[in-house]
């Protein structure tokens, strides 16, 4: 299954900078979507697709850090590469704390910029991969019957079949059947794998 090409979103209210950066990234073989204002970007941005955002810090209407917050509110983890015309340290620290992928000072050399974009895209891809995996696990957890989930919760806690049977008021044999079913549904062979998956899915009593 081939992934769709990631999109590099460009947002800068300075049209000439926007055009120059757009040309450079396109010439470097990237798929670019350029916007002159944060609003325009938010209207056409699709969180489902892979990509990253190259964002100017200082813009009227909505500043870079504010856009970062707006994206977080939409549960988007689109990596952001900040660009600034001035080495404003407090702003950059704040942005990085909030999870900015990088913080570059204009004028920025193509190598630096492309490297930052590449690592941002890489980060996006791994983020998306992790998210997908998590989603798969969660789907598996969701496919368990209530009884199977009760059994799983107790297995993860490290209880023995006998203890679980006593707790649930049944016989050990029944627990064994449920446990096999859980292993199968979760697609694991070992107890260690099951515990790891359940941990990632946040299964808890």
């Amino acid at each position: 299954m081939s992934e769709p090409a990631p999109t590099v979103y460009l947002v800068d209210d300075d049209i000439s900078v926007l055009r120059g950066l757009g040309r450079l990234l396109a010439a470097a073989g990237l798929k670019v979507a350029a916007f002159a204002s944060p609003g325009e970007f938010l209207r056409s941005f699709d969180p489902a697709g892979p990509g990253c955002l190259v964002l100017d810090v200082a813009m009227p209407e909505l500043s870079g850090p504010e856009l970062q917050q707006a994206l977080a509110a939409r549960r988007s983890e689109l990596p952001i590469v900040f660009l600034t015309g001035q080495g404003d340290i407090p702003t950059s620290v704040q942005a990085m704390k909030r999870g900015a992928a990088d913080f570059l000072t204009k004028p920025v050399d193509e190598e630096t910029l492309l490297a930052a974009i590449r690592s941002a895209l890489e980060r996006d891809r791994s983020l998306r991969k992790a998210q997908e995996e998590l989603a798969r696990i969660e789907r598996r957890v969701a496919s368990l019957t209530p009884r199977e989930r009760e059994v799983l919760e107790r297995v993860v806690e490290g209880r023995l079949n006998k203890q679980i049977a006593a707790e649930l008021g049944t016989v050990e044999k029944t627990i064994k059947v449920h446990r096999a079913s859980v292993m199968q549904k979760m697609g694991v062979r070992t107890l260690a794998d099951l515990v790891r998956l359940a941990g990632r899915a946040g299964v808890k009593r």
């Binding site: 900078v17 200082a58 015309g85 001035q86 004028p107 920025v108």
Partner: peptide, 16 residues
């Protein structure tokens, strides 16, 4: 900032 904006555009354009 005022100076860096055009410089950034020039650099990107030239490298493109």
């Amino acid at each position: 900032h005022e100076l860096n904006q055009p410089l950034a555009a020039i650099l990107s354009n030239a490298q493109a």
